[in-house]
Computed example of a mutant assay.
Amino acid sequence: MAEVHKKIYPVDPEAPPTVRLVPQGSARSEKGDPGKHYPPVNWTYPVVHSTPPKKRSCCCRCLCWTISILIILVIIIAALVGLFFLIFRPKIPSYSVDGLRITELNFNSSTSFSAKFIVRLTIKNPNKKIGIYYENGSNLSAWYSSSKLCEGSLPVFYQGHHNTTVLNIELTGHIDDGNTLRQALSQQQQTGTIPLTLNAKVPVKVKLGKLKLPKVTPHANCSMVVDSLSMNNYIRIRTSNCKLKVKILFINI
């Protein structure tokens, strides 16, 4: 009988041992049933989940709520303001100086000066649904450069809707040291252009329908140029420009 020679392969002593896996539940080994084919083994590996997101802190939630509330308040205020302008359509009253008469202008000595002006002031309320109450505490003053010549006040009255009111306001003044002022006015008289300024501070209350708002104090400034300053003569106003400034909630209008 022929001798069968088997080829022997060298074995690596450091190589890991070869292990053949047999499916669980198989009673027969591969040696006992070499022709048996087993299905592939499905291995289940543990799933490693990512770290869950951290919950928002209490401070972050409070900040988000605060910002949301502020945005809502701004939207509500803007809607109310828009509704107010849509219903009442407010317009700023206009002021103009239409006449000036001097009843007294005396330089009694080199150190004394007195004056009395009559100013014709026209006030127009262009609003159809807004009335204006002119309150106590008003002040109207006439200035030449940095020298106050005279001053007075407006009467207390109510100006209705779409109304025009003409006032003749008397201003009086006295300056102890009038020498410098007299020299300046004498030189300015020769040019025929004398700049004057009227400053007004008028406390008012605005009436919206039946609602009366709190008191505010507008400041009016009228810059004008007259041809002369002489008593009992017609004084022509060459130019006049009046501006009104109202300060409400730290906003100048």
Rank of each mutant, 00 (worst) to 15 (best):
S112K: 13
S146L: 05
I169C: 09
I169G: 08
T165C: 00
N199D: 09
Q190A: 14
I118N: 14
L171F: 03
L149H: 05
L140C: 05
K91S: 00
L105S: 15
L140K: 02
N168F: 08
N163F: 01
G152N: 06
L181I: 03
P90S: 12
S138D: 05
L198F: 13
P195G: 02
P155L: 03
Q190R: 09
K124F: 03
S114L: 03
L149M: 11
I175F: 02
Q187Y: 05
G99N: 15
Y158K: 11
G131N: 12
S186F: 09
L154M: 13
A115N: 12
N127S: 09
S146C: 02
G173D: 03
V97T: 09
R120F: 03
S112I: 08
S146T: 13
P203Q: 11
F107E: 15
N136Q: 11
R120L: 09
R101I: 08
L121D: 07
K129Q: 11
V206L: 09
A184C: 02
K205W: 06
T111K: 12
A115I: 13
G178N: 01
A142C: 09
D98T: 15
D176M: 11
Q187P: 00
K91V: 00
S96D: 10
S145I: 04
N163K: 05
N139E: 10
D98A: 14
D176K: 06
T172M: 03
P93E: 01
T193Q: 14
K128F: 07
P90L: 11
D176G: 13
H162G: 00
